[in-house]
Each structure stands twice: as C-alpha cells, then as structure tokens.
Amino acid sequence: AIIATLLGAGAIVAGATSKTRGLAGAGMGVAAGGGEMAQRSILAYQRTEEMTADRSAITYLNATGQSGLGMLKTFGRFQSALSLSGAQVDPYRISHPLPRERIANLEVLVKKSPYVDKVDPPALQQRHDMMRIKIAAYMGGQAAASRLMRKMPGSLASQYGAAQTSYLFGDLAGALAKTNALIKAQPKNPYFQELRGDILMKANRPKAAAEAYAKAVSLDPARSGLLSVSYGQALMAIGTPDSLEKAVVQINKGLGRDRENAVGYRHLAQAYGELGNIPAADLATAEGHFYSGAYKDAKIFAMRAQMKMKRGEPGWIRAQDIINYAPSGKKK
C-alpha cells in the first residue's frame, strides 16, 4: 500500500509537471487503489480471525460437553435477517464473515460432535434465561422483556423479569414483593438479593439495602466485584463514619476483582472525600478518569494526589504510573 501510494504520488507530480492529465489521473487511481488493497487485506485477516474464533468455540463446547447447535441457529437467524433486509453486502468490505459462510465453516464440526443432541441441564438453562431477560429489560425496555417472558410463562426466569421491569419502571412496592417471592423460592441465589438491594436503594432505604447486598456478597461463589461495590455504595448512603469506613473496604475489595470499574472509583473517591482523606480521593478520581479513557483528567488528579503523598508509597507509585501512561501511538 505504501509503495502504491508513493508510485501514485510520483505519477501525479509527473503528470502535473508535464501537464499530462491522463498520467495525473492514473497516479490518483494507483494511490487510491493501494489504500483499497490495504483495507481489504486487513478485513480479510479479521474475517479469518473470526472464523478461527468460531471453530475454537466448538472446541470449547466439546470440552465442556455441550452442543453447538445453538451457534448454527444463531447464525441462521442472522442470515434470515440479512436476506429480509435486502441489503447488498460486499463480502470483501466487511470485518466478519457472512452468516452463510460461518454456518458452512461450522456445520460439519457441530454435526460430528458426540454432544450434538445433548440438551443443557435445567439449572444452566434457567440461569441463561434469567440473564437474557435481565439484559432485555435493561437494554430493550419493558416491551423486549415482556416478549421473552411470554415465551417462558410461569418460569422462575419470567418471574425474575417481572421483578426487574417493575423495579426499572417505577413500581417499587410490586418489585419488592416479587423479589421476596423469588428469594423464598431460591434463598441462596445472590442475584435475587442483589435485586432486593437495588430496589431498597431506589426506595431510599440504604440500611436495608446494605443488608441485602451483604447477603448477596456472602452467597456469591464467583465473588463478583460489582456486588461488593454495590454493597459499599449502600454503606456510603447510610452516611455514618463507621459505615463510610466499611464502604471503603468493600469498594476496594470490589475494585480488586474488577479493576476497570470506572463508576466504582467514583464512589470510592466520594467515600474517601467524606472521610477527609483527600489524597486517596484524588487518586481514586484519577483511576476513574483513567479507566474511562479520560487520560488528561486522570493525569491532573494523579499529580494532585502525589503532591499530598509520601514519595515511594504505593499510592504515589500508582499515581506515577498514571502520569507516565501514554496511549498506544501517542506521546506522553
């Protein structure tokens, strides 16, 4: 591509010098064509990587004893949607393979798998359904969640979706009643306790919310960082010095497991600020900006934090890391 651009530029200059329009035009074509070739080469590489990822997915499904038929069905839906849209797609100018190509790439592997007809365990399917309904409620709204709930009437996932939509769209009393029923059905489910905490926070009952989040944290086998941050946020809302100290501990625990939670750092900065620990508040603010991609603001707060810290202590070193950070391809 670079050679083509240089040759094209040379032809343009030669054409301009000799007042030969054809040569100049040809030079422009060569230069543009070089860029087009480079772009197509990159896109071809990306498509190959996607195909490799698809095949790896089948390898992982076989390793866990699961069927890959779901992938074929998903790509089949993509193909149907593409066909119905009537869009004309240039297969050489896209970053992902066309759905029909992905199906062809996987069909033989899926069908020769010993697990092709294996049905997922009910507990795994239930978790999956609850996840889908929660995503639908948050991303697609009440109508999207309702469409999914109609496909699984009476299920625990459907009840979870009903509680989520009640919470998100203003019926806090109804949401709390539905969530309490879910907890009665599955008392050891940490995410039902999380939802209870969310509802109570929205109802301005931080002490009860903190108790629900604490229960969620204690029940969570995955030790999710988000749950600890939510617990810390509820403790902050209680507002006593003791609860603020506990909030700092919980939020730091959560961030230790989820380093890139920018919102968590903002809560941590607020807690440190209310406790009067301004250097730590400035450093947490810097971290929040850093993980949000606002590197200039991150450096400003990191420098402010350093000015009030002892040189060489852990916080000072982390602030220096932020100050020294240069995004790829840019100078500090």
Rank of each mutant, 00 (worst) to 15 (best):
G33Q: 04
L84M: 13
G232W: 02
G141V: 03
A262K: 10
L7G: 06
K332E: 02
V108L: 11
A209P: 03
A305K: 13
I12L: 14
L82H: 02
M152H: 09
A87G: 02
Y115A: 15
A247N: 04
Y191T: 03
G174V: 01
H128N: 09
I3C: 04
P91K: 13
P187A: 10
N204P: 04
E194Q: 12
P187S: 10
A123S: 08
L275D: 06
A162F: 04
G312E: 10
M309A: 10
S228R: 14
K207L: 10
Q186L: 07
K178R: 15
M201V: 11
A237R: 04
G86K: 08
P241V: 07
R127V: 02
K246V: 03
A143C: 04
G8F: 11
R55E: 09
A9P: 00
R127P: 04
V217N: 12
T59K: 14
A38C: 02
G276D: 05
G239K: 05
G312Y: 13
V30F: 14
L226I: 07
V217S: 14
I12P: 11
L176S: 10
L23V: 12
G174H: 07
E211V: 09
G239A: 14
K253C: 00
Q233C: 05
Q164I: 06
Q193S: 13
G27S: 06
A302I: 07
Q79S: 08
M303T: 06
L255P: 01
E274T: 08
M71P: 00
Y138E: 06
S85D: 06
L219M: 08
Q142R: 15
M303Q: 13
A271L: 05
L61R: 09
R257M: 11
P327L: 05
I278W: 10
P99A: 11
A136V: 02
T48Y: 03
S146Q: 14
D120V: 11
S83I: 08
E36I: 11
K151F: 10
G161I: 01
Q39F: 05
G15E: 08
Q159E: 10
P241W: 13
M28P: 00
V13F: 13
I300W: 07
D258P: 00
T179N: 06
L244M: 09
L255Q: 03
I42Q: 08
I58R: 06
Q320F: 04
S158H: 10
L219H: 12
L72M: 12
N252I: 01
L98H: 00
D297W: 02
A32T: 03
E107I: 05
A143R: 15
Q306E: 12
A44M: 03
F78P: 00
G239M: 07
G8D: 03
T20S: 14
E50T: 09
R266G: 14
G10I: 00
G10T: 00
G27K: 08
T59A: 15
P122L: 13
E274H: 09
D282F: 11
K308G: 08
A163Q: 10
L109Y: 11
K188W: 03
F192C: 14
T20P: 00
K188C: 01
L195R: 15
A143K: 15
P121Q: 05
E49C: 05
G34P: 00
S146C: 01
F192G: 15
G161F: 03
A302P: 00
V116T: 14
A247T: 01
